[in-house]
Design a protein around this nucleic acid. Structure first.
Length: 261
DNA sequence: CGTATCCTGACC
DNA sequence: GGTCAGGATACG
């Protein structure tokens, strides 16, 4: 489920459901999760009050009276909000029962996501992150500077959160289609004009998603995507067949005609 | 830079 | 049975 717009949406769900509440019970239901949040850590959270929920890139930071939780959904994570008197949702990995009878569960079929607790904000091991694509201060010259040492293709560089925070595999492809730039273009040879187009393209892709946050949960999942998952379909702009290639082990979809190197 | 890895599930 | 999946990281 999660790229940045989905994480933003999920963080809002969590904030509304949990801020101001006290955690009564924590269960960690999967070995992979237990590595991030051992039972001793989980127990420390019982009785903690949830004070704030913030998002940075695809991370969620949950401030509690007993430390900070660093949450990452990875490929499949999501929050499920329900009641403590009902059954657990499928793939519930970490479950928080709150004092108002509500229940927050991290659901994550692949169990690649994580929740970890740290004593204070300074202890949270957030990696180096570039500016958010949606940050109005993020400029073409900044992007060029960040790409200065990248001699490889632009698309894998866009997935590097140190360059731009928040773009994932889908929106990186969509951003490049919007900007009419080939995913194989050499990153550090991007002109200033193309860097500007790419930022606009990324903002457009994220804005399109923002208008429709629950999209991935529904059947028409790729309905509003221009290239992702559309191998063989005609490009909306030029009708040439969308192509799929693999870069850095990930699928890249693009139009070979209107996305030029 | 690319590749393997952490996991499970869906699909061929 | 094999392949693929929206992420990030440790490695070579």
């Amino acid at each position: 489920m999660p790229e940045l717009p989905e994480v933003e949406y999920a963080a809002g769900i969590l904030r509304r459901a949990a801020v101001g509440r006290t955690i009564e019970r924590v269960r960690v239901l999967h070995d992979a999760q237990r590595r991030h949040l051992p039972n001793t850590e989980a127990r420390r959270l019982e009785g903690a009050r949830i004070l704030a929920v913030e998002r940075r890139a695809k991370y969620q930071l949950v401030t509690t009276s007993e430390g900070i939780l660093l949450v990452h959904f990875r490929m499949n994570g999501d929050w499920h909000v329900g009641r403590t008197d009902t059954g657990l949702p499928p793939h519930a990995r970490v479950v928080f029962d709150l004092d108002d009878g509500s229940r927050i569960a991290l659901t994550d079929s692949r169990a690649l996501g994580s929740i970890a607790r740290y004593d204070s904000r300074d202890d949270v091991p957030l990696p180096a992150l570039g500016p958010e694509a949606t940050d109005a201060a993020f400029s073409a010259s900044q992007l060029r500077e960040a790409l200065r040492t990248r001699r490889g293709p632009i698309k894998p560089a866009l997935l590097d959160q140190r360059i731009v925070a928040g773009l994932g595999n889908i929106y990186a492809a969509e951003a490049l289609w919007n900007a009419r730039i080939s995913p194989t273009a050499v990153a550090n040879r991007l002109s200033l004009a193309r860097a500007a187009r790419l930022i606009d393209g990324a903002r457009q892709a994220l804005a399109d998603a923002h208008r429709d946050p629950g999209r991935y949960a529904r059947a028409e999942s790729t309905e509003r995507l221009h290239v992702y998952g559309r191998e063989g379909e005609p490009c909306e702009r030029c009708r040439v067949a969308i192509r799929r290639i693999v870069q850095a082990g990930r699928s890249t979809f693009y139009c070979p005609r209107c996305q030029r190197v």
